[in-house]
Design a protein around this nucleic acid. Sequence first.
DNA 1: AATAAAATTCATTTTGAATTGAACTATTCC
DNA 2: GGAATAGTTCAATTCAAAATGAATTTTATT
Lengths: 180, 180
Amino acid sequence: MSLASLPVPELQATETALREHFEHTLVEVFSELADLFGNPRSHGQIYGILFASPLPLTMDDIAARLGISKGSASQGLRALEMLGAIERDASTRTSTYAARLELKLLVSGFVRQRLLPRLNSSKTQLAALKTLLPSLPAEHSADYQLRLKRVTQWHDRALRFLPLAQKLLDTASKFPTSID
Amino acid sequence: MSLASLPVPELQATETALREHFEHTLVEVFSELADLFGNPRSHGQIYGILFASPLPLTMDDIAARLGISKGSASQGLRALEMLGAIERDASTRTSTYAARLELKLLVSGFVRQRLLPRLNSSKTQLAALKTLLPSLPAEHSADYQLRLKRVTQWHDRALRFLPLAQKLLDTASKFPTSID
DNA sequence: AATAAAATTCATTTTGAATTGAACTATTCC
DNA sequence: GGAATAGTTCAATTCAAAATGAATTTTATT
């Protein structure tokens, strides 16, 4: 029985533990990031484990490794796929999933699917207010006008800013310290 | 009894209803915005009603108008004050609160108090991973390296980007359509 | 200093969003 | 076509975060 011929079990065990630590850390990082922006932690966890995985994973892999139900995994994977953050390979009997490593996709998916719809909906609500502005208590007429203008203006700025922000995040390396 | 001398009750009632509608809409808009970024809705509501109010409000005003408890109002007001989004006037017996209308303060408060601490904490976690990179399964060594590099790089970009973003949102009016 | 009013705190309760899992549907393989 | 496996759905459950409110502390007023 040669000890030198193959990796010794202890080393394998250590490698596995380290790989699990690597995975665990990325799961945690993305889980907190998801939470921070009001998304389910499990979605972050799923993206995290896929991001840490050199090989694509199946839904069952993911559910087992994260200790979540198949139902959660299914829903989370769908949400992430719709964001454009992961890719499904359905060419085999059992689909496999891989993270798309360009984090910009995660951001732009969030912007497109969560942020923009809300911004547009409040924009409409605010536009409706504008029409009843003249009927508000005259005493503070100018103030009401200012306040509505402020928030409307900011909406417009945010909407104009978002595409630019994405472009900047994309190419941020080209603008290291020149502007700030 | 002259009908023309003072506002007729019906008109007053209408004015009140309209003012309430104005308030209600802003409460809703900011409440949804808060929720979108993972903050308590009540914090958005409080900022919303202060934003809609030409006159400063007391804590009891706010709790009553929003139908929330004094405890909630107290906590929400403190959080908003710490963000720098509202101002307390403690010169009188009963403190009053007013929204600071520069929405940039709301954003930069969120960035400073919620976003940056988290980004820095994951940055540390990721830096720790870097040291154990050589001990990970050799088969995918290059891939692990790439993945860790990607997420680290993105962290750095985000951290560098944030101050710039705030400056841009501040002065967005000067860059109307020239860049996007 | 005593009283009253305002504001805060925090243990408990509530609430709503996320998760589960069993039933169902779709797909693949023989 | 039928058995087996994969994947989805959604009503019911769980759980974490937010809200409550009674007790307490702080602050102002006489």
